[in-house]
């Protein structure tokens, strides 16, 4: 999720029957970020997200 959509993600998880679903959070916005900014976000997303995919 980008930071500005965290509350949307939390609500959608709840209404879809998965309250408390974990997700990685990266800086908003993506649409106007530089390439270096996108790389940083990708690293940050995987740092948080890889733990969620593993036991």
């Amino acid at each position: 999720m980008t930071t500005n959509f965290v509350s949307a993600a939390e609500l959608m998880a709840k209404v879809l029957g998965m309250p408390g679903y974990d997700f990685a959070i990266i800086d908003h916005p993506v649409s106007s970020a530089t390439d270096a900014g996108l790389r940083e976000r990708a690293i940050a997303a995987l740092k948080q997200g890889s733990a969620m995919l593993l036991r």
Binding site: F5, S7, A8, L11, M12, V15
Partner: peptide, 10 residues
């Protein structure tokens, strides 16, 4: 549908 400002309504 929870289409409230800041909830589903973004």
């Amino acid at each position: 549908m929870d289409v409230r400002p800041g909830a589903i309504d973004r």
